[in-house]
Design a protein around this nucleic acid. Structure first.
Lengths: 328, 328
DNA sequence: CGTTGCGGTGGAAGCGGTTCCACGAAATAG
DNA sequence: CTATTTCGTGGAACCGCTTCCACCGCAACG
């Protein structure tokens, strides 16, 4: 009757299992030696007591950092309100919370080596998650920091955008589009590569012409890019993009030019954001499991081996790439 | 030369100031008595050493909770991906991180008294931030929990939606709209009251007819609500809403019905979300400083007295409520 | 002049884990 | 059958801060 503390601690588990807290700690953390007998006793005791390790105490004893920093490379100061960033940050906070780690949000301008040095020197940083950075910069990180850094994109955790966008591209081709243009991501962004590869693949397989313009992830740039495409390649019958926001800009430009979607030109996005459902016609797009990616990146940064890498993206079809182009 | 530890601790400060850690702690936390002399010495030493308190150690010693829980009342399981929720959660995580507090995200179904009891019993919960709950439920909280609870809406930190929506409503009236309908929030939601008050105000001041329909914050419900308004009050020349998503649904319904915006019917939203810029015509709306509100709520829940309450909302004008209705 | 009261103080005991280290028993080697 | 590892173990220090409590000197009190 004496084991029913409000919330049992390691010492309660140890007492009940008839071992020391040292042994109990070793068993439960899996580090260090332990005999099958005590292993069993400790585990049973922990289960019976409903033991939950105290994350803060654990952090303190670990002497490791206390926060994970999520650094997004972007020039726009309001990037921290971006849906991608907030979704990722919320997911990170929710998972690291259980381990007593805080999540800090940070924007890094393009060339912020000094800021990175400061992070490397800051002992309170348990792990660093970078988004929007390229390998070159990451390789240049101080070794001490790099070992506890993971990335979103740039070879780290990422969405399989090649598959998602590839599926959309092939759908376009299958439904009769033959002059498919792509508005890719910014040139400096490593994440831009996969969609380009998917597009190159389509070109190679089908012999379609290559029509690429670079954008960012804003509606305004989408509008401009669409106008550029219409000017350079008047016969274009489909515009694929790498973000819903860009695609929305495309829809606006096409509408302004009196071009019908999908009858004259089909459009596809990427992200499956609320935007895709909001516009008319509804945007065909592909899913982007931001939360899963964010959590996986945090795990990787904390040195967890199991952290997966590439997450699937599934196409979602709405009105913007409906039937074939044979409307004439 | 011996004070230059990597990161100085309280003990270093105390040593340098020639006092005990107890005194140093008292001085720096402002709790408990201290003489002007030691106060001065400690503060100077802390400044010279660049002392930064260790948040995790502080949490541990405080014996108080280690996490703040952000509980959103909603039926939809995917509410935790909602932009409002993720923006708020990211902001909370970023601010509480510095104090060694984690941020947990939780969805509460409408009638989840049991879940609240569990939270009340959970010693690890330092503070609770509720969103979407009404006063009745909050008053019914166990006293121990209520004392460390703050709300978003329901009398807690909130956006001054009455002002934001009031400004939009008056703009509509000033530009000649005389049959203004409102799609309000859900009846059960406390936050729905302020916009209704603003609308009632308009009705009283201008003698316009009262036309209210209740929606939620989804595009689909916005469509349905718009259809209902068109059916019940055919003369309606403006539809105000309390969320951009709802307004987008309205735009879709109007477009489907062949009604021109803003020529025949003006539309306004609320939130100034990316949606507002994405649709055609652009949505006139009002800003919603979610981050400020979230941070203020956390502060309030942690017992900080300075936590502000009502944050301003500013109208943002785009095409959806352009010129007067005199298009005929 | 001997209480009492009180502001200020430092020692020390936590908070709840992790980990170093010394130590005894069992297993292997010589 | 000793000498040497090896393995598992518990005691105790420690992470960095807060706070209880005993204690001291000093002013005001009777």
């Amino acid at each position: 009757m004496q084991g029913m503390t409000a919330n049992p601690g390691l010492i309660d588990v140890a007492r009940r299992a008839g071992v020391s807290t040292a042994t109990a700690s070793r068993v439960l953390s899996g580090r260090g030696p332990s005999s099958p007998a005590s292993r069993d006793a400790v585990r049973r005791a922990a289960a019976e007591l409903g033991y939950v390790p105290h994350p803060v105490a654990r952090r303190l004893a670990h002497r490791s950092g206390t926060r994970i920093v999520f650094a997004v490379r972007d020039e726009r100061p309001d990037i921290l309100r971006d849906p991608f960033v907030t979704r990722a940050a919320a997911a990170m906070a929710a998972t690291t919370e259980a381990e007593g780690l805080g999540t800090a949000l940070l924007r890094l301008p393009l060339h912020a080596a000094a800021e990175l040095d400061r992070l490397a020197a800051d002992r309170s940083v348990a792990a660093l998650v970078l988004a929007g950075h390229d390998r070159a910069l990451i390789d240049r990180l101080p070794a001490a920091l790099r070992s506890r850094t993971a990335t979103i994109g740039a070879g780290g955790s990422d969405v399989d955008s090649a598959a998602g966008i590839g599926a959309l591209l092939h759908h376009l081709h299958r439904t009769g589009r033959r002059q498919i243009a792509l508005i890719a991501g910014p040139r400096w962004l490593a994440a831009s590569r996969a969609p380009l590869a998917a597009y190159a693949n389509l070109v190679r397989e089908t012999g379609s012409p290559t029509r690429i313009v670079h954008g960012d992830f804003t509606i305004a740039r989408g509008r401009a890019a669409a106008r550029e495409i219409l000017r350079r390649w008047p016969g274009t019958d489909a515009i694929a993009t790498v973000s819903d926001a860009t695609a929305v800009g495309v829809l606006q430009a096409l509408s302004a030019a009196g071009i019908r979607v999908p009858d004259d030109v089909a459009v596809t996005g990427f992200d499956d954001s609320p935007l895709a459902e909001a516009v008319h016609p509804g945007l065909s797009t592909a899913t982007h499991p931001v939360e899963l990616i964010a959590v996986s990146a945090v795990r990787a940064a904390l040195g967890e081996p199991s952290a997966g890498r590439l997450f699937p993206s599934h196409p979602v079809f709405r009105g913007s790439c409906g039937g074939p182009a044979a409307a004439a």
